[in-house]
Design a protein around this nucleic acid. Sequence first.
DNA 1: CGGGTGGTTGATAATTCTCAATTGTTGTGG
DNA 2: CCACAACAATTGAGAATTATCAACCACCCG
Lengths: 230, 230
Amino acid sequence: MSTEHTARTSTRVPVGHSASVPGINESVLFAGCPEVIGTPFSYAREEEVYGEGEEAEFVYKVISGAVRTHKVLSDGRRQITGFHLPGDLFGFEQGACNRHTAEALTNTKVLIFKRRQVERAATGSAEVACQLWGMATNDLRHAQDHMLLLGRRSAAERVATFLMEVDERLGGTGTFALPMTRRDIADFLGLTIETVSRTLSQLEEGGALRRVGGRQVILRRARLRRVVED
Amino acid sequence: MSTEHTARTSTRVPVGHSASVPGINESVLFAGCPEVIGTPFSYAREEEVYGEGEEAEFVYKVISGAVRTHKVLSDGRRQITGFHLPGDLFGFEQGACNRHTAEALTNTKVLIFKRRQVERAATGSAEVACQLWGMATNDLRHAQDHMLLLGRRSAAERVATFLMEVDERLGGTGTFALPMTRRDIADFLGLTIETVSRTLSQLEEGGALRRVGGRQVILRRARLRRVVED
DNA sequence: CGGGTGGTTGATAATTCTCAATTGTTGTGG
DNA sequence: CCACAACAATTGAGAATTATCAACCACCCG
């Protein structure tokens, strides 16, 4: 069961508005929508970006690092609903209130956009609104794929699927360092850390991957694919 | 494990366009968008509305009856991603291709809208696009709640949550007939039919509900809530 | 070096699944 | 209206998977 997540009481909140950074460093959220510009902001490892229940004031784009969003039950059981890597947007899911907590996995740089501004841009431009619709639809697709994984796949299938997905999002080289702990993986896959660990060991035994000290993995993708088999 | 769903090869598809039905029978999808009107259509119990992988040509609004959408693995394991009751829209989730199969639980009447038309309405009206965005966001919220259920809740919690949700969507009286089979419930909750059945028996023993012949249930909502406890 | 965190492994327990048998429900035709 | 078939739901016994509890190891960073 999930236990012992760092307790945090307050969310650090950006103030002021730095100038937009033109040129190669693109800080606009939508092409042709210069009024919605992002403010650079940083979070430290394990720092909370926003908390469940708080007013949803901002939306975010990851520049570097990684963020997780999760839900918790009152007894501490936790389900991570997504990992957000550079280029990803998050914080769009909610209405007036955040329905997740978001935390930085590592030191993370983001661009912050005011929700209000994004909404105003959407009501003013069908094109922007359609992009937002498309993004939500995309998130929905991921969520539904993940439902199938959580509801119907075995531990080995979950872990193998997860590794292939992370690989793809990190460049698809087959060699990478997992940016999250076993607890995060477990809480994403609906397993315990022990089961994740054991499953990784079994996959290694079966020649589907090699581990180098905890986080680093080298995937044998053809064999991993055979584990998932679909 | 999920097995033996009725195999269907072809999806029946509506042809032609009946006149819009004005008056109390509202067939427009969006207020102030008269060009997107729905065509009434019916599906028989267990009939396929659309299949995974097919081109996504229509979107649907349930008038009466009920529809389920699901995903399947090659070995037959199935995850139902949603039940759609009167008033609900479905078929919006996909891009060019359906990523689910949709089937009628019972004899079902729907309104069918051409995807193309809906998309055109969205690109032409920020208001429509925002409504679509909102609908997708809403679906996303449900999906994420369901992830928490599938990843972290016990069988008893899942079944109790499910019963309360169905009750609410069916009017909140606490007394209703489940519109779906145990298999459907199981495939929605990530359990087996036997576990669903046993869990219902335990809930009945514990006084959280009463069953009358298979489908009919009378909930003791306060006690059910105590099972979910959150 | 030492302490802390994160990760692995082992033994055992709990939950859920599987397989099998039985009962209940519904719809149909005689 | 009843008997029967077909399907749906329940229940039981035993197996499998995953969780829990506990010990241990490894690495990092001062």
